[in-house]
Amino acid sequence: MTASLTDKRDGIFQPVVATAPLPARAGVGFKAEHASDVFENADPVSWFEVHPENYMVSGGPRLQMLTQLRERFPLSLHGVGLSLGGGEPLDKNHLRSLRALVDRFEPAQVSEHIAWSGHDGKYLADLLPTPLTLAALADLVNAIDEVQNAVGRRILIENPTSYLALPQNAMPETDFIMAAARQSGCGLLIDVNNIFISAYNLGFDARDYIDVLPADLIGEIHLAGHEQDADARDDVLIDTHSRPVASPVWALYWRLIDRIGAKPTLIEWDNDIPDWQVLAHEAALANAIIDASENCAKKPLRKVAS
């Protein structure tokens, strides 16, 4: 390593790069395949996000690459394994590993999902649905509080993708996620693609969901592509992160930031990963909407004299 994020003179971590908040512009999920493009010229992408679980190793090339990335860009750690909605005690080793990454990489933001991904010591490698009940809400709030204390900072929690309505559900999802944020003191990461998919799959109007989200809680927005399920007997959308962002999702995104203002916006693309130029183009589209929305806000239409 020629350059380092840490000053190792005393063996004590001293961040050389100051931690700034994520810019309210487009970021993308970092993929090793794009490393040479990113390190050469990342425009128009100004920040990156990774799953901390992929970096919970002792050493080697992955951590080295993340160090190089962090030397150049603000970083967001977006967890998939804490199982906040699991209704059981959090994995203490996992929390310690997350804390170690937060200490080492000084991310601008730390986030997790409103979901569960393991049960009784078995990791299930998916984001599973949390029942929308008071009992689950209390467990979720406790879990968020434990994470925030463990990593020493406020986190964001992400709204889930739904494929089915659990029979246990006793309140609207918007009430559930806002209560979780208000009671725990965390913020929200709003995935617009998830809202679109859930609305399509469960039969509600995505605009109603978007319109009640409070601006003060939202710290980041996610956008991604989805696909129709291969099962022709069922009309259902799957959250595949394998395509460009769909037009109706862009429209919902525009609707959201027009009301709440620009926020750090991530393009997620995790499967069938395209060339860097394709991903950069998606980021450019997000920036274009941010710019257009801000310009419209500054220049309201004049009333036409009658």
Partner: peptide
């Protein structure tokens, strides 16, 4: 970080600990 933990009881006062 202030936390108001909601009691694990539903509106009818019944213990609602079927989450697990």
């Amino acid at each position: 970080m202030t936390v108001t933990v909601q009691a694990r009881h539903d509106a009818n006062g019944a213990k609602n600990d079927d989450n697990a």
